[in-house]
Amino acid sequence: MLDLGFHQAASLHSLTPQAELRLLAVASQGNTANGLETLWQICASLQRLGYPVVVLDGTAQESDDSPGLLHLLQHATWNDGASLNLGATASSLAVIPAAKGLQHLSRKAGDAARSPLESLLPYFRTYGLMVIHAPASTLGPLLTHTATVPLVVMGSGAAGVMTSYKSLKQIALHTGLPCMVAALLHSNTAAERRKAQSQLMTLQACAERHLGGPIRTTTIATQNPQDLQRLALQLLENAGTMNGALAALTPSNLTGMPAHFVRSH
Rank of each mutant, 00 (worst) to 15 (best):
S83W: 02
H145S: 01
Y51T: 04
G101L: 04
L117V: 06
H13T: 14
F6C: 13
Q170I: 07
N243I: 01
L70D: 00
A232F: 04
A245M: 08
Q223T: 09
H260T: 11
L70E: 00
T255M: 09
Q229L: 10
S14E: 14
I171W: 07
H145A: 06
Q199E: 13
T175Y: 02
Y51N: 11
A205C: 12
M180V: 07
L70N: 01
L36Y: 14
R193M: 02
T89R: 13
R193E: 05
M1K: 10
A44P: 01
L72H: 03
L2M: 10
I132Q: 00
T218N: 02
S115G: 06
T38V: 03
R114E: 08
A44S: 13
Q29Y: 01
G110L: 15
N253C: 09
N224F: 05
V149A: 12
Q103E: 14
T144S: 13
E118K: 12
Q61T: 14
Q223S: 12
A248G: 12
G58T: 01
V26W: 13
Q234C: 13
A196R: 08
V26L: 14
A88S: 12
G128V: 07
V95G: 06
Q199M: 07
L173V: 10
Q18M: 12
P52W: 09
T222I: 13
L84W: 03
R114W: 02
K100G: 08
M242E: 01
L249Q: 10
A147T: 06
T163P: 00
V55W: 00
P67A: 05
G110R: 15
L86V: 09
T250E: 11
Q103F: 05
T241H: 10
P116V: 14
N224K: 04
V95E: 06
L102F: 06
A247F: 04
N224V: 01
D64R: 10
M154P: 04
P251F: 01
R114H: 07
V26N: 08
R125H: 15
E192A: 02
T38L: 05
H71W: 06
N85S: 07
P251A: 03
G212K: 05
L117N: 02
L46E: 09
L231M: 08
N253S: 15
N188F: 09
